[in-house]
């Protein structure tokens, strides 16, 4: 584990959003260091997914700012955010199940192409170039997740883990600098989880920065370089796994009032047993 955190790729300052009277995310100031894995954890309803939705431009924040690679992206639309280099996957296996694996990845590459309706109608050089570029970009992404041999199959025919990989390939096809993974291990068995962790490590070793929301503490503790803890929409801790799992506020947040929170592990114990 590195001693000093490297240069951050993403910095949020005083970020907040409220729906009606409910503050889903409130005054969050945090950063995601380059080339590392940052995990965002917190009890149910802590605002983790909302936090991702804010970064990826799905929601417009009601306060605060988001900077990516030094540029202010607070007000950008989702496709503009993707174009700047932030891609994401969803909690469930949200992919185009009827389309082929290749088509899924090609859709992810769309943001790197410019051919529009007129190019399509007139079959311009740009159209042909972009079509080839999409194919090549999509294949590169499929190779990174190990799905190149499955390119022609309908995405829905793959296993749960395979479909997760399709989702990641779709995100990778946009050539991101930062990859946001929303509960990547949800619905997976232990072996699949381990294999997915291997994939994430490989991607980071290749220079990618990853931020993920996850409930499975084994994955978080085994994978994350840094952890950001949200509770009731607010940041209550940020630091290395070791620091966070010792933090009394964090332990309180998880154990207090969440004794029956079915899908939550207990980070104190989980951290202890896995460290």
């Amino acid at each position: 584990m590195p001693e000093a955190a490297p240069e951050p790729v993403l910095e949020v300052r005083d970020l907040g959003i409220h729906f009606g009277g409910l503050h889903a995310v409130r005054d969050v100031t945090a950063s995601v260091p380059a080339g590392q894995i940052t995990a965002i954890i917190g009890p149910n309803g802590a605002g983790k997914s909302t936090f991702f939705n804010l970064i990826s431009g799905f929601y417009q924040p009601t306060s605060g700012s988001i900077r990516f690679l030094g540029e202010d992206i607070t007000r950008l639309k989702t496709h503009q955010v993707v174009a700047r280099g932030i891609a994401r996957t969803f909690q469930t296996t949200t992919i185009y199940k009827e389309l082929s694996v290749l088509d899924n990845a090609m859709i992810g590459h769309r943001v790197r192409t410019r051919a529009g309706l007129l190019d399509a109608l007139l079959r311009t050089g740009r159209e042909r170039q972009d079509e080839q570029g999409s194919r090549a970009g999509a294949m590169r992404a499929l190779e990174r997740v190990g799905l190149a041999s499955q390119a022609g199959r309908p995405a829905g025919a793959l296993t749960q883990e395979g479909q997760k990989r399709v989702g990641i390939a779709m995100a990778l096809a946009s050539d991101p600098r930062l990859l946001l993974l929303d509960e990547p291990a949800a619905g997976m068995n232990p072996e699949e989880t381990v294999s997915l962790m291997g994939l994430i490590r490989e991607l980071v070793a290749g220079g990618l920065t990853v931020a993920l929301v996850e409930h499975k503490m084994s994955l978080v503790m085994g994978l994350a370089d840094r952890i950001l803890v949200l509770h009731h929409g607010q940041k209550i801790a940020q630091g290395t796994p070791a620091e966070v799992s010792r933090d009394p506020t964090v332990i309180e947040a998880y154990l207090g009032g969440h004794a029956h929170g079915g899908q939550m592990g207990q980070p104190g114990q989980a951290g202890g047993s896995h460290a």
Binding site: S56, T94, Y96, I107, R110, A115, L117
Partner: peptide, 23 residues
């Protein structure tokens, strides 16, 4: 076309298409 594939993506799910980077 490239454009048409993006339309198919929108048909399959507007939010997914948006997060995949499609305008």
């Amino acid at each position: 076309s490239v454009f048409g594939r993006s339309l198919v993506a929108i048909r399959g799910g507007e939010d997914l298409a948006r997060s995949a980077g499609i305008d």
